[in-house]
Design a protein around this nucleic acid. Structure first.
Lengths: 195, 195
DNA sequence: CAAAACTCATTAGGCCGCTAACTGTAAGCC
DNA sequence: GGCTTACAGTTAGCGGCCTAATGAGTTTTG
């Protein structure tokens, strides 16, 4: 599950030493990069363990949350839905979750097997399915969420409000940079293709 | 591969709204938590794509790096080895990489199949194997590393040196907190068991 | 010395990502 | 109408992660 398979990060002095022999190694960038992945892994591990105790994976949990938003208008604010109708079809769910449709098929398969969701054919377009949260799935979420929020809050409990804001600002800077890098990489190919 | 299956994060105002209806939801903690996972996923995605282009996964790459350290004393500094001898057996590698031994067996399987490493039985203890980087594996790393460092540096290129230091400080605070939480969770059980 | 306990590596089976190929349906265009 | 194209969902197969169980070898201990 982890992104980074390196338990103990190298110390900064070691990176400085290593940079002498490995041209191209940027010590401060590498340090920040490794710490970002390590911390994220640790943090995700805490919440994931909580979810695992309830026999659910991160991916399945996310699908339930998305469906919950779709079927409970009051909850829509939680996940930032701009419109009132959230994702319901496998394709929409896959897009919202950032996974492929094939992956979403598998997630919905297991959720359906466990009785948390149902698949219903769309009467208008026979290609489409509509995924719906069952009462069991809804209750499961209701039971799970308080603990989930508690765990999430505990992970960040060592940072003050100001530190949290600073952290988010720095992370957003990195996110925007990564997004820009990706666009720069894709555009040369994307601009040439659609002739 | 991603930890967080949620493409678009909720806006902070939405979290504030949601907190009114969902007791226990800490808006600033949730925001920081989600941004941490999202950014880490994005950053890891960039380097992972680079590795994938070379037909290697994050996990296999990490094993190669660990072995490289073990067999190239000059490289030991890079990964922060305190002693001169790095991990060589599957168990040591699994421990250093933070995965199970079963997982390491699979990683070494594919690396051996591709000719990057070899397994040799330990003459002293016949339970043990010793994993060794081949010349092909060494060359592969030599070719890969410059690009890998370049990509890593580019991810962090939007932060100044001072911002990188601040980011690392905040991340370390979270790491230490998570480690403390984990110890607190494990000790009650761990203290009772070893009677 | 022999049984018990431990350790090493592996295997078996499951979940969850992915890509690529496939089926069935809808829509656009002679 | 019939053809092509595009799209929704699924299937098949692979990689990598996990846990649990297994077989082989070592160490501990009575």
């Amino acid at each position: 599950m982890p992104h980074l398979l390196l338990k103990d990060l190298p110390r900064y002095e070691c990176l400085l030493e290593a940079a002498k022999e490995l041209p191209g190694l940027d010590p401060s960038a590498t340090e920040a990069f490794l710490h970002l992945l390590r911390t994220s892994d640790d943090a995700a591990g805490v919440t994931e363990r909580n979810l695992t105790n309830h026999n659910i994976s991160q991916g399945r949990f996310c699908v339930l949350m998305l469906l919950w938003r779709s079927h409970h208008p009051r909850a829509a604010k939680l996940l930032g839905a701009e419109d009132c109708c959230g994702p319901r079809t496998p394709a929409e769910l896959a897009d919202a979750a950032g996974v492929t449709r094939a992956t979403m098929t598998g997630l919905v398969d297991t959720l359906e097997r466990d009785g948390f969701v149902t698949r219903e054919p769309d009467p208008a377009d026979r290609r489409m399915m509509s995924v719906r949260l069952t009462a069991k799935g809804d209750k499961f979420l209701q039971d799970l969420l308080p603990g989930h929020f508690k765990v999430t809050a505990s992970v960040m409990s060592s940072l003050t409000e100001a530190e949290r804001r600073t952290l988010v600002e720095l992370l957003v800077k990195v996110q925007q940079n990564v997004a820009a890098l990706r666009r720069a990489k894709e555009e040369p190919a994307g601009a040439a293709a659609p002739i």
